[in-house]
Write a protein that binds this DNA or RNA. Structure first.
Lengths: 176, 176
DNA sequence: TATTGTTATACTCTATAACTATA
DNA sequence: TATAGTTATAGAGTATAACAATA
């Protein structure tokens, strides 16, 4: 049996604070990326991931894994970025099935153009009121949470649908 | 001049940890709400906000303020919820312009149905590795950040577009 | 005139399923 | 058969602008 007793008020407060801060920060960053470089958040994430990779190259599948996208979702984003000349796509030499996405000079340029503002927003909204000890504490605590999340079992072992039973009430087939 | 020097690695790590944890948590909660009650996150937020209000009633504008929605976005969500019989809408008695959204019994029922799973997810993914001291630290630190965000000036005083100049490169007119 | 809310419209993002091609 | 990726399709969410009605 799992515990479903209500959360105590302090726990709830901590959870809400996290959600609130994350949402506000995400929103501000989204604005900044759009204004400074015409980028959406997922596009920025892809470009930033590529910039981190050797030669600015990455296989589609590897990108998708790191960014939690479905493959079709990534295909969509990659197509947008290719259309904007920020990346190129080419099939891999060693495995014809794979597609290698490569950051173009223009893509790097956009990233450079956008970074200062990105940093400025993070600093102004998030870092300003934090001292070194706070930074260390956040990193430690959230690091533990992250580890927990990565190791926690999914909620249901499998979509387990008893043979022949119809979809459950309130269920739709459009998950993430 | 604002500071746009790169973030030091520890600051960056803290920021990324926050983003990561928030994203994973949001994703898990989204799944749970859909599975247990057929609710989307914004719908749940609206229902929960209403449940907190006296008599389960709230003006559209007040709802929008608390939830960062544009008015049209809230109209859309309210229409969805009304269609599902989870809320009703009626114009206010004292001010004919205002619309009062009210939680129905069915809406309350869905909320009750969904809450245990919601709590379970938060507890399992977020609270498990945290002691009382951690909870207190998070609340304190993120509380300060939140206050900072709420008081921080927006990035640009106004959309300032020099008279007659065309839209800038990379700019699209589909903001949030 | 200012405020409240809705409507029309357009666009982004995401997912599922079906499909192609290579290993 | 399994893996990599694309395409077609569908739907949710959101915003902007124009609009109607009330204060």
């Amino acid at each position: 049996m799992t515990d479903t007793t209500p959360l105590d008020p302090r726990q709830l407060t901590a959870y809400l604070a996290l959600k609130d801060v994350a949402a506000l920060l995400e929103h501000a960053v989204e604005q900044q990326l759009k204004e400074d470089g015409g980028l959406t958040t997922p596009q920025f994430q892809i470009l930033a991931t590529l910039a981190d990779a050797p030669d600015g190259r990455r296989r589609m599948t590897d990108l998708a894994d790191g960014l939690v996208y479905s493959r079709s979702g990534l295909t969509y984003q990659a197509a947008q970025l290719e259309k904007a000349k920020l990346v190129t796509r080419a099939s891999a030499e060693d495995d014809e099935r794979s597609v290698i996405v490569t950051l173009t000079d223009a893509g790097r340029a956009v990233l450079f153009k956008v970074m200062p503002g990105h940093i400025e927003v993070v600093r102004r909204l998030f870092l300003t009121p934090l001292g070194d000890a706070d930074i260390a504490a956040i990193t430690d605590i959230l690091g533990r949470v992250r580890a927990q999340m990565r190791s926690a079992p999914p909620r249901s072992a499998k979509p387990r649908r008893t043979t022949g039973s119809p979809p459950q009430r309130g269920e739709r087939n459009n998950g993430r």
